Every structure is written in C-alpha cells, then in structure tokens.
Simulated assay, not measured.
Amino acid sequence: MKSVLSTVLLALVFTASIEAGAFASSAQPDYKDNAVSGITTGEFNDKRMQIAEIQEKTRGDNGEAFEGERRIDGSMAQKVVRVATTSGIRLTSQHEAGKQQQTVQTLALSSSAGRQNEDGGACSECPEMIPIPGNKFAIGKYTVTFKEWDACVAAGSCGGYQPPDNGWGRGSRPVINVSWDDAQAYIQWISGKTGKTYRLPTKDEWEIAAQAGSTSDYYWGNDVGRNNANCDGCGSEWDNRRTAPVGSFKPNAFGIYDMMGNVWQWTDTCWQGNCAKRMFFGGSWNHRPQDMRAITRNWFDTNKRMRYLGFRLAMTLP
C-alpha cells in the first residue's frame, strides 16, 4: 500500500511540475512592443505621455510566475485607461475616467448580436453575444462551455477531440484543456453551422470588454471582496478547487459574465509579432486575485492545453 501511495504522489508532483513549468516558461517581459502595451505611439505623442512598465511578479498554482503590466502617466502617476463611451474608446487618466464611470456603467444593451440568423430569424444554435457600446464588435456573454464543445464533436467536427473535464463535470462548465488551435476548430464549425463569422477577441477588445468602463482593478471595484469571481482567494465555493458553471457570479456593467476568474481566455493577438504564440487574459480558479486584473497577461504556444485555460467568442459588427 505504501508503495502504491508513493507512486501516486510522485505522479502528482511530476504533473504539477510540468504544468508549472509550462506556465512559467511563458512569463517573458515586454517593454517595447506597442501591440503588447495596447496603446499606439500616436496616442502617446499627442498627450506627451511616457510609459512605465512596472513588473509585478506574482505566484499562482504550483509556483507559476507571470507578469502584470501597468501603464503609468509619467507626470501624474495615474493609470492610463481606456474609457468606453457611446462615441468610442479614448485614452484618459484614472481621475478623469472616474468621473465618467457611473455614466458608462448605466449603459443599457437592448439588443444581442447572437440568437438570430443573418435574415433576422431565430437561431437557437447561435452563441449569445453582447455588443460593446461605441465599438464595432460583440463578445460572448459566457465562455464556451463543455456542452457547446461536445455538440461540435457530436457533429463530427472539432477533430473529434474530447477535452478532459478533470472529473468536475461538463455541461455548463467552461470548456478547459483546449488550445488556441482547438478554439479555431470550434470557431470554424460554429461559423459554418450558424452562417455567422466568429473569431477570438483581440487583446484590446478583451480588455475593453472586461473593464466595461470601470477604472478599478476589477470591474466590481479595487477590493477583490468575496464571491465576485472564482480564483484562489476570491471567497467562492469553487476557489482553488475546480471551475464554476458559467454565469455563477454577477456580470460586469456590459452584461458579460466571468471576464475575470474561472478560466484564462485565449485571444487572437500574437505575442510580440510571433503568431506561434498567442496571448491570454483573465485569471482562473487556481490563480491569485492579482492575476485576474486586465493589466495581467501571458502567452502560450498555440498548441498548449491546460486545465485552467478556455476561450470565448467574438465577432465583428457592421
């Protein structure tokens, strides 16, 4: 019996080491790439701003280290944020944005880009999409679930790949253990089935959708609080144990669920121009609250599959 237990423990330690190493290997700092900073050179020239990248090393599951990037106004030491307005997204200081936050958060979304065919008819197979105010894109109300993924497999698509659920259940839980390449297979299938053109969100789109006009660390405030999300230290029943069913927590001001916590989410943005690596955001059930902030990002090779990594859809609007 002791021999069997020793073997099981050794296997668990080995698996954890591989996962930690895979995550840590992607923690490469970036100080120059405008695509990663998310702010164009022109915007900074116009406002005569300087960029200061503050490297914030934090620890996640199994000692996984990664980097958060915070953009600072050199003269006022305030966060530079994007504010969603009805006329678009503009660069502003945290102080100025704070005055607008209440107005932005009261924006009501009266329509959905999903649940309809191109001719306006009902589309029960279409994912529910949320149009983002002042922008020509919509993003998934929820991350893609196991139920949605399994429908793809049942239809003979998605390469027949059935990602493991770690024994936590499938159904309405976010699909995990899916790579960026896997996400593309699903996108091809759902686009063909519904007649709509889906894709992954870009880095900038993900940030805009996640912040939902807020200027705080989290879209509900600067304090992580309790039971606002699923992470290692969020105060939920799933913390550092397993994923939660999608929609288990309050949505952000745009009506989007689980943009922070539960599972990291792939984006379509290449890492420093290398499209064999793609960026992901949002934190997960087994990473610390600091990791959920929109300023924290990382990358993996496009074929990487992890138990804390999923995706949500986006689409371009006319």
Rank of each mutant, 00 (worst) to 15 (best):
K2Y: 12
L5H: 06
L10Y: 13
A11H: 08
V13E: 10
G21Q: 06
A24V: 12
A27E: 00
Q28R: 11
P29L: 07
P29N: 05
Y31Q: 10
D33T: 15
A35D: 15
T40H: 06
T41F: 11
F44T: 15
D46N: 13
R48W: 04
R48G: 10
A52S: 13
I54G: 11
T58S: 14
D61A: 13
N62R: 13
F66W: 14
E69W: 12
G74T: 09
S75Q: 13
A77Y: 13
G88K: 05
I89N: 14
R90W: 13
A97C: 12
Q100S: 14
Q102L: 11
T103L: 12
V104M: 06
V104R: 03
L109C: 13
S112G: 10
G114C: 00
R115W: 02
E118S: 15
P127L: 08
M129K: 06
I130P: 03
I130C: 00
P131S: 06
I132C: 04
G134M: 04
K136I: 02
K136G: 05
F137A: 07
T143G: 10
V144G: 01
F146P: 00
K147H: 09
G160L: 03
Y161E: 04
P163N: 00
G167F: 04
W168C: 07
G169R: 01
R173I: 04
R173T: 00
P174H: 06
V175I: 04
S179F: 04
D182P: 08
Q184V: 03
Q184M: 06
Q184H: 02
I190C: 01
T194A: 03
G195I: 10
P201M: 07
K203T: 14
E207Y: 07
I208T: 12
I208L: 14
I208H: 11
A209D: 07
S214Y: 08
W220G: 09
G221N: 03
N222P: 02
G225K: 02
N228P: 08
D232K: 11
G233P: 03
K250N: 12
P251H: 02
N252L: 01
A253R: 09
F254A: 04
M259F: 03
G261E: 01
N262P: 05
D268I: 08
Q272L: 09
G273W: 14
A276K: 15
R278E: 01
F281H: 14
G283R: 07
S284K: 04
W285M: 01
T296R: 13
F300V: 06
D301Q: 05
L309S: 07
A314W: 08
L317M: 11
